[in-house]
C-alpha cells in the first residue's frame, strides 16, 4: 500500500496548504459562532502508523467527544472533530449561554448543538477543498459519541485497516483565545481518495 502514499515534498505542501485554508475557514466559522478568537496550528499532514493515531489526542483512554461525518463524493473519506471532554463542556456552556462549568454531562440538546458545530466546521472545511480541487465533497449527517479516544478513532481506522497499516491524516488543532476550548479536526481520506485529490491539485 505504501506506493499509494509516495508523495513528494511539494504534494505534501499542497495538502498542508489545502488543510490550512480548510481549517482557517472552519476556525473562522467557529469563532463567529462563539464570538471568540480561535487560533489554529499549521496542519499536520502525515502518514502515521494506525496504532499511534490515538496518541495525537492524548492517548487511547483519554475521554473525548467526537463528532463524526462521512464524506461522500469523488474523494470519499471521514471527518472527525475531537474535543477533550472538558473542552466539549466548555463549548456547550458557551453555545447555550450557560456559566462556564455548568455543563457536567451532555443532554440531547447539547449533543445536537455539538453535532451542528461539527456540521458547520466540516462544511467550511470541505468548501476550501472544493476551491482547490474542484472535487465536490458532501458530508453526511453528523454522529456524536463521548468515549475513549481509541474507541472513537476505531471507526476511522478500521476502514483504513482493511487497506494497510498506516493512515494519511490531515490534522489541525484549534485553540480558543481564553484556552477554554481546544479541539482536533481530522480529515482522513479513504485510501484511493488521496490520489484523486493530489491529481486534482496538479502538483507533482
Amino acid at each position: 500500500m505504501s506506493e499509494e502514499f509516495n508523495l513528494s515534498a511539494n504534494q505534501l505542501d499542497a495538502l498542508r496548504e489545502i488543510g490550512n485554508v480548510g481549517a482557517g475557514n472552519s476556525a473562522t466559522a467557529l469563532s463567529q459562532i462563539i464570538n471568540r478568537r480561535i487560533d489554529m496550528n499549521v496542519p499536520k499532514v502525515a502518514l502515521v502508523p494506525l496504532d499511534t493515531v490515538p496518541d495525537l489526542v492524548g492517548g487511547p483512554d483519554t475521554i473525548v467527544v467526537g463528532v463524526f461525518l462521512r464524506v461522500y463524493g469523488k474523494a470519499p473519506g471521514n471527518i472527525l472533530f475531537l474535543l477533550p471532554q472538558k473542552s466539549a463542556f466548555y463549548l456547550v456552556d458557551t453555545l447555550m449561554g450557560k456559566k462556564h462549568g455548568e455543563t457536567e454531562k451532555l443532554d440531547f440538546m447539547d449533543e445536537s448543538a455539538l453535532m451542528e458545530i461539527g456540521n458547520i466546521l466540516a462544511g467550511a472545511y470541505l468548501n476550501a477543498f472544493f476551491t482547490f480541487t474542484q472535487i465536490s465533497m458532501l458530508p453526511s449527517i453528523p454522529a456524536l459519541a463521548m468515549d475513549m479516544a481509541g474507541a472513537i478513532l476505531n471507526v476511522v481506522l478500521v476502514q483504513l485497516g482493511q487497506m494497510g497499516d498506516t493512515a494519511m491524516v490531515i490534522e489541525t488543532e484549534f485553540l480558543s483565545e481564553d484556552d477554554g476550548i481546544n479541539g482536533h479536526f481530522f480529515l482522513v481520506p479513504d485510501p484511493g481518495s488521496l490520489e484523486t485529490i493530489i491529481s486534482a491539485v496538479g502538483v507533482e
Binding site: 490515538p54 492517548g59 487511547p60 475513549m148 481509541g150 478513532l153 471507526v155
Partner: peptide
Amino acid sequence: LISYGLGSC
C-alpha cells in the same frame, strides 16, 4: 496485560 480504548476492536 492491558489494552486501552477498544471500540469495534
